[in-house]
Amino acid sequence: MDEREGSQRLRIIFESAGCTIADDAPLSLGARPGAGGAERIVTLDGWDEARRIGYEFITTDAGDRAEFTPEVVAELEAKMHAGELWVFLVDEADIPDPAVLERAAQRFLDALRARGVLP
């Protein structure tokens, strides 16, 4: 299963849960520390701007390693710890068969429902 197929499956699951997903959507992480206030923007594979929920496949082929550096992932996770946004992160090294991916996505969405992020 490649990034494209995985993204399509996630889009269906996220939209079934009530999300409105935009493909390859930009997300601002705010000003880059120590970079003169320049804004840092990353592109997510799927993103619901209104609910601030999305998903990202991190793959080497797609050049994601250059964009989603450990610092960027740490920044994203800091925002998730703060409850500002929720991005389901899938590393290609962990990409399982489709059934496992779909079950994991459902559980992620269940977790958001439990937190009141999704109805």
């Binding site: 998730m80 991005v87 590393d91 496992v100």
Partner: peptide
Amino acid sequence: VPFWRLSYYQDWQ
């Protein structure tokens, strides 16, 4: 491992 990572669910399973 936070719940937004796929590996969290793989560990769980």
